[in-house]
Design a protein around this nucleic acid. Structure first.
Lengths: 128, 128
DNA sequence: ATGATTTTGCGAATCGTTCGCAAATAAGGC
DNA sequence: GCCTTATTTGCGAACGATTCGCAAAATCAT
Protein backbone atom coordinates (compact mmCIF):
# COMPACT_ATOMS: atom_id res chain seq x y z
CA UNK A 1 0.00 0.00 0.00
CA UNK A 2 1.03 3.58 -0.47
CA UNK A 3 1.19 5.96 2.46
CA UNK A 4 2.50 9.43 3.06
CA UNK A 5 5.68 8.85 4.98
CA UNK A 6 7.86 11.90 5.18
CA UNK A 7 11.34 10.76 4.29
CA UNK A 8 14.61 12.39 3.55
CA UNK A 9 14.69 11.27 -0.11
CA UNK A 10 11.18 12.57 -0.73
CA UNK A 11 12.02 15.94 0.76
CA UNK A 12 15.21 16.18 -1.22
CA UNK A 13 13.52 15.33 -4.48
CA UNK A 14 10.74 17.83 -3.83
CA UNK A 15 13.46 20.34 -3.00
CA UNK A 16 15.08 19.90 -6.40
CA UNK A 17 11.73 20.36 -8.12
CA UNK A 18 11.02 23.47 -6.06
CA UNK A 19 14.39 24.95 -6.95
CA UNK A 20 13.96 24.48 -10.72
CA UNK A 21 10.60 25.59 -12.05
CA UNK A 22 10.82 23.69 -15.31
CA UNK A 23 10.31 20.16 -16.53
CA UNK A 24 13.10 17.88 -15.29
CA UNK A 25 13.78 14.26 -16.15
CA UNK A 26 14.38 11.64 -13.50
CA UNK A 27 18.01 11.53 -14.54
CA UNK A 28 18.38 15.31 -14.19
CA UNK A 29 16.90 15.21 -10.71
CA UNK A 30 19.17 12.34 -9.80
CA UNK A 31 22.18 14.27 -11.04
CA UNK A 32 21.15 17.37 -9.11
CA UNK A 33 20.90 15.28 -5.95
CA UNK A 34 24.37 13.85 -6.48
CA UNK A 35 25.79 17.33 -6.90
CA UNK A 36 24.17 18.27 -3.59
CA UNK A 37 25.80 15.20 -2.06
CA UNK A 38 22.40 13.64 -1.47
CA UNK A 39 22.72 9.94 -2.06
CA UNK A 40 19.34 8.87 -3.45
CA UNK A 41 18.93 5.97 -5.82
CA UNK A 42 17.50 6.46 -9.27
CA UNK A 43 14.76 3.96 -8.46
CA UNK A 44 13.66 6.13 -5.59
CA UNK A 45 13.59 9.17 -7.82
CA UNK A 46 11.26 7.34 -10.19
CA UNK A 47 9.08 6.02 -7.41
CA UNK A 48 8.85 9.36 -5.68
CA UNK A 49 7.92 11.14 -8.90
CA UNK A 50 5.15 8.63 -9.48
CA UNK A 51 4.04 9.13 -5.90
CA UNK A 52 3.95 12.90 -6.26
CA UNK A 53 2.15 12.60 -9.55
CA UNK A 54 -0.53 10.38 -8.04
CA UNK A 55 -0.98 12.95 -5.27
CA UNK A 56 -1.45 15.62 -7.91
CA UNK A 57 1.62 17.59 -6.83
CA UNK A 58 3.53 17.01 -10.03
CA UNK A 59 2.76 17.23 -13.73
CA UNK A 60 4.34 14.79 -16.13
CA UNK A 61 5.24 15.68 -19.70
CA UNK A 62 6.79 13.60 -22.47
CA UNK A 63 9.51 15.56 -24.20
CA UNK A 64 10.29 15.38 -27.90
CA UNK A 65 12.46 12.28 -27.37
CA UNK A 66 9.69 10.50 -25.49
CA UNK A 67 11.33 10.85 -22.09
CA UNK A 68 9.23 11.64 -19.06
CA UNK A 69 9.83 14.98 -17.40
CA UNK A 70 8.25 16.39 -14.26
CA UNK A 71 7.43 19.72 -12.70
CA UNK A 72 5.62 20.86 -9.55
CA UNK A 73 2.18 22.16 -10.39
CA UNK A 74 -0.91 23.71 -8.91
CA UNK A 75 -3.55 21.10 -9.55
CA UNK A 76 -6.22 23.71 -8.98
CA UNK A 77 -7.18 25.19 -12.31
CA UNK A 78 -6.68 23.59 -15.68
CA UNK A 79 -4.22 25.40 -17.87
CA UNK A 80 -1.58 24.94 -20.54
CA UNK A 81 2.07 25.74 -20.87
CA UNK A 82 4.25 28.02 -22.91
CA UNK A 83 7.68 26.40 -22.83
CA UNK A 84 10.87 28.23 -23.79
CA UNK A 85 13.01 26.11 -26.10
CA UNK A 86 16.16 27.82 -24.85
CA UNK A 87 15.94 27.81 -21.05
CA UNK A 88 12.93 25.57 -20.43
CA UNK A 89 11.07 28.23 -18.52
CA UNK A 90 7.37 27.44 -18.28
CA UNK A 91 4.59 30.01 -18.23
CA UNK A 92 0.99 29.12 -17.61
CA UNK A 93 -1.53 29.87 -20.31
CA UNK A 94 -5.25 29.61 -19.80
CA UNK A 95 -7.31 28.71 -22.82
CA UNK A 96 -10.66 30.43 -22.82
CA UNK A 97 -11.54 29.07 -26.25
CA UNK A 98 -11.93 25.48 -25.10
CA UNK A 99 -15.68 25.57 -24.67
CA UNK A 100 -16.10 26.82 -28.19
CA UNK A 101 -13.79 24.16 -29.52
CA UNK A 102 -15.76 21.43 -27.74
CA UNK A 103 -18.99 22.78 -29.17
CA UNK A 104 -17.54 22.97 -32.66
CA UNK A 105 -16.24 19.39 -32.51
CA UNK A 106 -19.62 18.12 -31.42
CA UNK A 107 -21.46 20.04 -34.11
CA UNK A 108 -19.20 19.25 -37.04
CA UNK A 109 -17.89 15.76 -36.24
CA UNK A 110 -20.25 14.38 -33.62
CA UNK A 111 -17.13 14.15 -31.46
CA UNK A 112 -17.58 14.17 -27.68
CA UNK A 113 -14.53 15.95 -26.27
CA UNK A 114 -13.32 14.70 -22.88
CA UNK A 115 -9.65 15.63 -22.80
CA UNK A 116 -6.94 17.47 -24.63
CA UNK A 117 -3.25 18.24 -24.71
CA UNK A 118 -1.93 21.59 -25.69
CA UNK A 119 1.42 23.21 -25.39
CA UNK A 120 3.14 26.17 -26.95
CA UNK A 121 6.82 26.29 -27.79
CA UNK A 122 8.97 29.27 -28.49
CA UNK A 123 11.38 31.74 -26.92
CA UNK A 124 10.68 33.52 -23.67
CA UNK A 125 11.28 37.21 -23.11
CA UNK A 126 14.61 36.88 -21.38
CA UNK A 127 16.05 34.45 -23.94
CA UNK A 128 15.23 36.64 -26.89
CA UNK B 1 23.11 8.14 -48.07
CA UNK B 2 19.37 7.80 -48.18
CA UNK B 3 17.65 7.21 -51.50
CA UNK B 4 14.17 6.38 -52.64
CA UNK B 5 14.42 2.75 -53.59
CA UNK B 6 11.07 1.12 -54.08
CA UNK B 7 11.21 -2.14 -52.18
CA UNK B 8 8.76 -4.80 -51.21
CA UNK B 9 9.03 -4.06 -47.45
CA UNK B 10 8.44 -0.37 -47.98
CA UNK B 11 5.37 -1.02 -50.10
CA UNK B 12 4.01 -3.48 -47.56
CA UNK B 13 4.51 -1.13 -44.65
CA UNK B 14 2.89 1.73 -46.54
CA UNK B 15 0.07 -0.67 -47.37
CA UNK B 16 -0.60 -1.37 -43.71
CA UNK B 17 -0.65 2.35 -42.94
CA UNK B 18 -3.00 2.99 -45.85
CA UNK B 19 -5.36 0.27 -44.66
CA UNK B 20 -5.62 1.61 -41.09
CA UNK B 21 -6.21 5.34 -40.88
CA UNK B 22 -5.15 5.70 -37.26
CA UNK B 23 -1.93 5.92 -35.29
CA UNK B 24 -0.12 2.57 -35.25
CA UNK B 25 2.96 1.55 -33.32
CA UNK B 26 5.90 -0.15 -35.00
CA UNK B 27 4.95 -3.36 -33.20
CA UNK B 28 1.36 -3.18 -34.46
CA UNK B 29 2.54 -2.70 -38.00
CA UNK B 30 4.95 -5.58 -37.64
CA UNK B 31 2.17 -7.81 -36.31
CA UNK B 32 -0.12 -6.83 -39.17
CA UNK B 33 2.60 -7.76 -41.65
CA UNK B 34 3.08 -11.15 -40.03
CA UNK B 35 -0.62 -11.84 -40.24
CA UNK B 36 -0.44 -11.03 -43.93
CA UNK B 37 2.45 -13.49 -44.23
CA UNK B 38 4.79 -10.66 -45.11
CA UNK B 39 8.11 -11.40 -43.52
CA UNK B 40 9.59 -7.99 -42.67
CA UNK B 41 11.93 -7.44 -39.77
CA UNK B 42 11.04 -5.09 -36.96
CA UNK B 43 14.20 -3.10 -37.67
CA UNK B 44 13.00 -2.47 -41.17
CA UNK B 45 9.64 -1.32 -39.88
CA UNK B 46 11.38 1.22 -37.70
CA UNK B 47 13.74 2.32 -40.44
CA UNK B 48 10.96 2.64 -42.97
CA UNK B 49 8.81 4.67 -40.61
CA UNK B 50 11.69 7.04 -40.03
CA UNK B 51 12.23 7.21 -43.77
CA UNK B 52 8.57 8.01 -44.42
CA UNK B 53 8.57 10.56 -41.63
CA UNK B 54 11.61 12.33 -43.05
CA UNK B 55 9.86 12.46 -46.43
CA UNK B 56 6.86 14.03 -44.74
CA UNK B 57 4.52 11.16 -45.61
CA UNK B 58 3.97 10.10 -42.04
CA UNK B 59 3.15 11.86 -38.78
CA UNK B 60 4.61 10.60 -35.53
CA UNK B 61 2.81 10.83 -32.21
CA UNK B 62 3.85 9.74 -28.73
CA UNK B 63 1.00 7.96 -27.02
CA UNK B 64 0.21 8.17 -23.32
CA UNK B 65 2.78 5.46 -22.54
CA UNK B 66 5.50 7.27 -24.45
CA UNK B 67 5.52 4.87 -27.38
CA UNK B 68 5.88 6.22 -30.90
CA UNK B 69 2.93 5.75 -33.20
CA UNK B 70 2.60 6.64 -36.86
CA UNK B 71 -0.04 7.57 -39.40
CA UNK B 72 -0.04 8.61 -43.04
CA UNK B 73 -0.68 12.33 -43.38
CA UNK B 74 -1.12 15.10 -45.88
CA UNK B 75 1.83 17.32 -45.16
CA UNK B 76 0.08 20.15 -46.98
CA UNK B 77 -1.81 22.21 -44.42
CA UNK B 78 -1.09 22.38 -40.75
CA UNK B 79 -3.84 20.93 -38.61
CA UNK B 80 -4.58 19.06 -35.39
CA UNK B 81 -6.25 15.83 -34.50
CA UNK B 82 -9.37 14.69 -32.71
CA UNK B 83 -8.59 11.14 -31.61
CA UNK B 84 -11.28 8.69 -30.50
CA UNK B 85 -10.26 6.93 -27.30
CA UNK B 86 -12.33 3.90 -28.25
CA UNK B 87 -11.45 3.08 -31.85
CA UNK B 88 -8.49 5.38 -32.48
CA UNK B 89 -10.20 7.09 -35.41
CA UNK B 90 -8.53 10.39 -36.24
CA UNK B 91 -10.31 13.45 -37.57
CA UNK B 92 -8.50 16.55 -38.69
CA UNK B 93 -9.21 19.80 -36.93
CA UNK B 94 -8.01 23.15 -38.14
CA UNK B 95 -7.32 25.78 -35.56
CA UNK B 96 -8.17 29.24 -36.73
CA UNK B 97 -7.44 30.80 -33.36
CA UNK B 98 -3.68 30.26 -33.51
CA UNK B 99 -2.83 33.70 -34.79
CA UNK B 100 -4.67 35.28 -31.90
CA UNK B 101 -2.97 32.98 -29.43
CA UNK B 102 0.45 33.92 -30.79
CA UNK B 103 -0.39 37.60 -30.52
CA UNK B 104 -1.66 37.19 -26.98
CA UNK B 105 1.45 35.31 -25.87
CA UNK B 106 3.68 38.00 -27.29
CA UNK B 107 1.70 40.79 -25.67
CA UNK B 108 1.28 39.29 -22.21
CA UNK B 109 4.46 37.24 -21.75
CA UNK B 110 6.87 38.52 -24.35
CA UNK B 111 6.86 34.95 -25.63
CA UNK B 112 7.78 34.38 -29.28
CA UNK B 113 5.69 31.42 -30.42
CA UNK B 114 7.34 29.16 -33.00
CA UNK B 115 5.62 25.81 -32.54
CA UNK B 116 2.85 24.04 -30.72
CA UNK B 117 1.26 20.68 -30.03
CA UNK B 118 -2.44 20.24 -29.72
CA UNK B 119 -4.68 17.24 -29.73
CA UNK B 120 -8.21 16.53 -28.68
CA UNK B 121 -9.36 13.27 -27.12
CA UNK B 122 -12.86 11.93 -26.80
CA UNK B 123 -15.40 9.66 -28.41
CA UNK B 124 -16.24 9.74 -32.08
CA UNK B 125 -19.74 9.67 -33.46
CA UNK B 126 -19.83 5.98 -34.26
CA UNK B 127 -18.40 4.90 -30.89
CA UNK B 128 -20.93 6.85 -28.88
C1' DA C 1 12.09 1.70 22.68
C1' DT C 2 9.02 -1.86 20.07
C1' DG C 3 6.49 -3.64 16.39
C1' DA C 4 4.01 -3.14 12.20
C1' DT C 5 4.31 -1.06 7.81
C1' DT C 6 6.42 1.58 4.23
C1' DT C 7 10.32 3.09 1.74
C1' DT C 8 14.94 2.53 0.09
C1' DG C 9 18.95 0.75 -2.47
C1' DC C 10 20.78 -2.47 -5.29
C1' DG C 11 21.10 -5.12 -9.21
C1' DA C 12 18.62 -7.64 -12.50
C1' DA C 13 14.91 -7.63 -15.79
C1' DT C 14 12.04 -5.45 -19.21
C1' DC C 15 10.59 -2.92 -23.17
C1' DG C 16 10.94 -0.02 -27.03
C1' DT C 17 14.30 1.47 -30.14
C1' DT C 18 18.86 1.71 -32.47
C1' DC C 19 23.05 -0.17 -34.38
C1' DG C 20 26.74 -2.98 -36.95
C1' DC C 21 27.61 -5.87 -40.40
C1' DA C 22 27.18 -9.32 -43.95
C1' DA C 23 23.81 -10.86 -47.39
C1' DA C 24 20.08 -9.54 -50.49
C1' DT C 25 17.93 -6.30 -53.56
C1' DA C 26 17.14 -2.22 -56.55
C1' DA C 27 18.59 1.06 -60.20
C1' DG C 28 21.03 2.17 -64.34
C1' DG C 29 24.13 1.22 -68.15
C1' DC C 30 25.71 -2.31 -71.18
C1' DG D 1 18.95 -9.88 -69.46
C1' DC D 2 23.46 -9.25 -67.00
C1' DC D 3 26.86 -6.60 -64.42
C1' DT D 4 28.25 -2.98 -61.25
C1' DT D 5 27.36 -0.04 -57.65
C1' DA D 6 24.72 1.94 -54.04
C1' DT D 7 20.99 1.12 -50.87
C1' DT D 8 18.18 -1.69 -48.00
C1' DT D 9 17.34 -5.76 -45.32
C1' DG D 10 17.60 -9.20 -41.55
C1' DC D 11 19.69 -10.70 -37.70
C1' DG D 12 21.29 -10.38 -33.22
C1' DA D 13 23.56 -7.53 -30.08
C1' DA D 14 23.58 -3.11 -27.76
C1' DC D 15 21.29 0.62 -25.78
C1' DG D 16 18.69 3.82 -22.66
C1' DA D 17 14.84 4.67 -19.92
C1' DT D 18 11.93 2.59 -16.71
C1' DT D 19 10.29 -1.15 -13.62
C1' DC D 20 10.80 -4.92 -10.49
C1' DG D 21 12.10 -8.22 -6.52
C1' DC D 22 13.90 -8.54 -2.34
C1' DA D 23 16.43 -7.77 1.87
C1' DA D 24 17.86 -3.85 4.79
C1' DA D 25 16.76 0.68 6.65
C1' DA D 26 13.60 4.20 7.97
C1' DT D 27 9.04 5.96 9.56
C1' DC D 28 5.05 6.12 12.39
C1' DA D 29 2.05 4.99 16.33
C1' DT D 30 1.97 2.89 20.71
Amino acid sequence: MRADYVTRPREQIAGVLRAEPRFLSAAEIHRALEQASARVSLSTVYRTLEYLRSKGDVTERLDEAGESTFMLCEPAHHHHHAICRVCGRVDDVSCAALGQIAESLRATLGFELDGHNMEFLGTCRSCR
